[in-house]
């Protein structure tokens, strides 16, 4: 009798846990808002980097470009730009846009200090 009660006790715990998880994940998830740029899909990230590259190509301000890249993703800047180049190639961006991204990519390894992936670059304004 005691074993039977214990079995049903455990069963109710599992059932309750299922209810709690269902509530948190399906019925009341956090709102789809107030997200960070790192949650953007890859095509939007690529366009984000392209904007940074377009600005960099005009003003040549690498420090500003690095700051903007750090806002996008907590990864080394060259990796972020390389990923954007990959995505841009797959999505068949115009040649001029690929060149703009490559222009930024070529500037990064020479002058940019490597940021450790473990060191968060949370210097967002």
């Amino acid at each position: 009798m005691r074993a039977r009660r214990f079995f049903f006790f455990l069963l109710m715990i599992v059932f309750g846990a299922g209810l709690g998880v269902a509530y948190g994940w399906w019925f009341s998830p956090p709102p789809y808002a107030d997200l960070k740029p790192e949650t953007l899909s890859y095509d939007y990230k690529a366009d984000y980097v392209l904007m940074i590259a377009e600005i960099y190509r005009k003003d040549g301000n690498l420090a500003a470009a690095l700051g903007r890249l750090a806002l996008l993703e907590n990864l080394p800047a060259e990796q972020v730009v390389a990923q954007a180049l990959l995505t841009a190639s797959r999505l068949q961006y115009a040649q001029a846009d690929l060149e703009t991204l490559a222009f930024l990519a070529s500037a990064l390894p020479k002058a940019a200090p490597r940021v450790s992936p473990t060191a968060p670059a949370e210097n967002a304004p």
Partner: peptide, 29 residues
């Protein structure tokens, strides 16, 4: 048992492994 389970499930789904969005679009920033 049910209450214990619900509390554990809520802690799990809201605190330990909350929903994280990916592949979002700029309007959700």
């Amino acid at each position: 048992g049910l209450i214990i389970g619900i509390v554990a499930g809520l802690v799990l789904s809201l605190l330990v492994y909350p929903v994280r969005y990916a592949d979002s679009d700029p309007s959700a920033l």
